[in-house]
Simulated assay, not measured.
Amino acid sequence: MSKTLPTIHEVTEHEAALYRMERLDLEFSNGERRLYERLHGRGHGAVIVVPMLDTETVLLVREYAAGFHRYELGLVKGRIDAGESALEAANRELKEEIGYGARSVEALRSISLAPQYMSHQATLVIARDLYPERLAGDEPEELDVVPWKLDALHELILLDEFSEGRSIAALFIVRDWLRHHGG
């Protein structure tokens, strides 16, 4: 069922450090009016990379997560720089974060983060046929690289240190994609 989108009567903007905050004055098809707020990220987008060491093993990174003030296990992630494609950014981030490049990078889909109030999306990329190559990155310390078998995903998702929703979703998507597209 397709619904009529609300009418936007007014948009006001407020600047924040990493985001631009918008307040929308909306009127829904039933006549109800509400104020909604949404965040727009700055920059050219982001990538979430699933680096496959082999057909069964993904490489995860453990890095400091300021939001929880702890170390968190997750996937390679990063911003897309100006003039860079998502696939180029994915390969650069791999080299910076885990010390590998990939001969094969493929964008699978876009993943959103809290679409009810954020415009942020990241391109999910699978990286295969890895080779050693390191680039200097912006991380303040070298990241731990943790190999994990996809058939043990059920154990990974129960670890307290593996909590980021995009990483969890990305691994399930890639695991099923590999099953249907000949890992």
Rank of each mutant, 00 (worst) to 15 (best):
E37V: 02
E37M: 10
E37D: 04
E37T: 11
E37C: 04
R38L: 11
R38V: 07
L39A: 09
L39N: 04
H40W: 13
G41Y: 15
G41S: 14
R42T: 09
R42L: 11
R42N: 04
G43R: 10
H44W: 15
G45T: 12
G45K: 12
G45D: 12
G45C: 12
G45N: 13
A46D: 14
A46F: 11
I48P: 05
I48A: 06
I48F: 01
I48H: 07
V49P: 07
V49H: 11
V49I: 13
V50R: 03
P51R: 00
P51N: 04
P51Q: 05
L53K: 15
L53H: 14
D54P: 06
T55W: 08
T55L: 01
E56C: 08
T57Y: 08
T57R: 03
V58G: 00
V58W: 02
V58Y: 06
V58F: 05
L59G: 00
L60C: 00
V61Q: 13
V61M: 08
R62D: 14
E63Y: 12
Y64P: 00
A65H: 12
A65K: 00
A66I: 12
A66P: 10
A66T: 09
A66W: 08
A66H: 12
A66C: 03
A66E: 14
A66L: 13
G67D: 14
F68C: 06
F68D: 05
F68K: 08
F68Y: 10
H69N: 14
H69T: 11
H69M: 13
H69I: 08
H69G: 07
R70K: 14
Y71D: 13
Y71G: 00
E72C: 08
L73Y: 04
G74E: 07
G74S: 14
G74F: 04
L75I: 01
V76H: 03
V76W: 09
K77C: 11
K77D: 10
K77S: 10
K77T: 14
G78M: 01
G78L: 04
R79P: 03
R79D: 03
R79H: 01
R79N: 07
R79E: 14
I80E: 10
I80F: 10
I80D: 10
I80P: 06
I80N: 09
D81Y: 12
A82W: 07
G83N: 03
G83A: 06
E84T: 02
E84Q: 15
S85N: 08
S85Y: 01
S85P: 03
A86I: 08
A86M: 03
L87F: 04
L87R: 05
L87K: 05
E88Y: 06
E88R: 09
E88L: 09
E88N: 00
A90R: 13
R92N: 01
E93V: 04
E93H: 15
K95C: 09
K95M: 15
K95W: 01
K95Y: 02
K95L: 08
E96I: 00
E96C: 08
E97T: 09
E97G: 09
E97I: 07
E97L: 07
I98F: 07
I98H: 04
I98M: 07
I98R: 08
G99F: 03
G99P: 07
Y100S: 00
Y100W: 03
Y100M: 13
